[in-house]
Design a protein around this nucleic acid. Structure first.
Length: 151
DNA sequence: GCCAACGTTGGC
DNA sequence: GCCAACGTTGGC
C-alpha cells in the first residue's frame, strides 16, 4: 500500500469539510510533480495524511483514503473556476485529481514543529527548506513514525 | 536553451 | 505582512 501527504489550506478545504462530505474530488493541483503522482502513482486504497498549511498550527489533521485513481480535473476547463487553465482542453486535460474519502480526524494535530523535532524524520521531504509541493510520497517508516507522534 | 522577471507558496 | 524558495513564463 502507498502512503501520501496532501496539503490544503483550511480556508479552502478542511478536514472537517471532508468529514462532512465523506468523499471529495481533490482538485486544483497545478504543479506537474504533484499532478504526476496523482495521475500515475496513487492507487485506490492508498492512505494520505491530510495536512493543513497557512494556518495557526500547520500540521497533519487526519487521514484520508484514495477511493478513485487519477482522472482529469474538469475545473481547469471551467472559466468560472479559480482553477481555470486556458491551456487545458478535453483532448489535453493537463491537470488531474483523485477522489479521497474521509477516514479519521485526529483529536490533536501532529504539528510541523513536532515533526521537525523528530530525528527519525530527517530526510522527509515535507521538512525540506522551502518545500512547497502539495502532494508528497510518504515512506512506510515515515508513516509509522509520524503516527507515533499522535498525542 | 538561457535566464530574468514574475507569481505563488507557506512558515514565521 | 514579510520574505525566502520555488516553478513558470517569455524574450532573446
Amino acid at each position: 500500500m502507498g502512503y501520501w501527504l496532501m496539503k490544503s489550506e483550511p480556508e479552502t478545504f478542511s478536514i472537517d469539510d471532508l468529514k462532512k462530505k465523506k468523499v471529495e474530488f481533490w482538485d486544483g493541483v497545478r504543479n506537474y510533480q504533484a499532478r504526476n503522482m496523482m495521475r500515475d502513482d496513487m492507487k485506490v486504497g492508498d492512505l494520505a495524511f491530510f495536512y493543513h498549511s497557512n494556518c495557526d498550527v500547520p500540521g497533519i489533521y487526519g487521514i484520508a483514503k484514495i477511493v478513485k485513481a487519477g482522472y482529469p480535473d474538469k475545473s481547469a476547463l471551467n472559466p468560472e473556476s479559480k482553477y481555470f487553465d486556458p491551456k487545458a482542453s478535453n483532448d489535453n486535460p493537463r491537470w488531474f485529481g483523485v477522489d479521497v474519502a474521509f477516514v479519521e480526524k485526529f483529536a490533536q494535530p501532529i504539528s510541523l514543529s513536532q515533526m521537525r523535532a523528530e530525528l527519525k524524520l530527517q530526510g522527509f521531504r515535507l521538512l525540506d527548506k522551502g518545500s512547497r509541493l502539495s502532494i508528497l510520497p510518504v515512506s512506510d517508516n515515515e508513516w509509522q513514525t509520524i503516527l507515533k507522534l499522535k498525542s
